[in-house]
Nucleic acid binder design. Structure first.
Lengths: 210, 210
DNA sequence: TAGATTGTTAATCGATTAACAATC
DNA sequence: TAGATTGTTAATCGATTAACAATC
């Protein structure tokens, strides 16, 4: 009978790329863009962009294209980027520190508000104005600032344990840099960034070339 | 008439996860594993593992499963991880330095052999025993050590220019951390790590929850 | 042997692309 | 108006899953 399909995850993962590209267009002073031109910038077909957007509404004008400002606002709203999500960063080694300092993370919709690490040598140090605190203190932190989103930059061996603690304190989405597959209950979202696995898939093609 | 299909990229991207899981099994002293048990560890169905492996040959025994050592060797060979691929790391900011120092990158099959950055303040400094050199020196470097694989940790604005230079000097696969879509000629492989885009897709689900 | 598990084929599911009426 | 481009439907393509004969 056709209740409206909810958008597949693969579409949700493309929306941030559309948003970024629209921000660039905005910077360039472009007011209006067609699905074709937008697609060219990110190597996606025009049909796919239109199909993706159609899950959420009608944002364009026939014969014209999309108003850059309005489409960007719509997508940011869909993604929840009109709010600011407080983020916990767990694991302040070299990588964690780079993440804490990375400009790009001070972006639309998310803000790192707490740094956790259980190494006594690190606790108390500040990075970018935020003190490093023990993970045990998360209970106190979420009492004043509920944290739904966390970034995990701990060694693989600790990743599952830390995940369990985060979830127990209300975290419902995790971006993990740990090279391991995390098990989480329903209702919790995990995405992994796995650069070594990516490198290891690239070598496949190198090994097979002329 | 059915010449054998070449394995889809999605299969190639899973192989490194199988390999990693097999290495863990090896560490645990497990000799033999079924597609079911292997799949459970990485949230993949048994059927998918068997189908994936079938693109490359027959590695198991009915009634028994797979010999861990042999399957691992096969997969590493398929991925080209039996060789060591010299890797160039370009962009030694906070992130680049974290990558250079990251234990996990000193892994099976790949080794960072050169650090590039064009910031005069950085050139000459050493990280983990490797000197930071100007990108212009890549011509000299590849003369002695041909480099097919590069990691890009430069700002988005420089990413395309750096990519063009790398490709001109023989690089054929790039792992990019720059939040931008790179354009490359045929025969060059690019994979992007885009943590901000991933965060921005997670907020979608957070925004929609109870 | 009986039980387990592979490799493979066919069925299913889902995502992408093509096409086009609607309309700016 | 004529040309351009949307939103949507149907067709295509590709990936995943189920099922099972083969066999250890």
């Amino acid at each position: 009978m056709g209740r409206p399909k909810s958008p597949p995850d693969v579409v949700i993962r493309r929306l941030p790329l559309y948003a970024r590209s629209l921000r660039h267009l905005l910077d360039e002073g472009v007011c209006s863009v067609s699905s074709h031109d937008l697609g060219e910038r990110i190597n996606v077909t025009a049909a796919q962009i239109r199909k993706d957007l159609s899950y959420f509404g009608e944002f364009g004008k026939q014969g014209i294209g999309y108003d850059v400002v309005k489409l960007l606002q719509h997508i940011e709203h869909i993604l929840g980027l009109n709010r600011e999500w407080p983020v916990a960063l767990v694991g302040i080694g070299h990588l964690g520190e780079a993440i804490a300092r990375y400009e790009g993370f001070r972006s639309q919709g998310v803000r790192i508000v707490a740094l956790f690490d259980d190494d006594p040598a690190k606790i108390g140090r500040e990075v970018e104005g935020l003190p490093i605190i023990a993970l045990a203190e998360i209970a106190a932190v979420v009492r004043t600032t509920p944290i739904a989103l966390a970034i995990l930059a701990v060694p693989a061996a600790q990743a599952q344990g830390v995940t369990d603690q985060l979830v127990a304190h209300g975290v419902r989405a995790i971006l993990s840099y740990a090279p391991t597959v995390l098990q989480v209950p329903d209702g919790v979202w995990v995405r992994s960034i796995d650069p070594v696995a990516v490198l290891h898939s690239l070598t496949y093609y190198l090994a097979r070339e002329p």
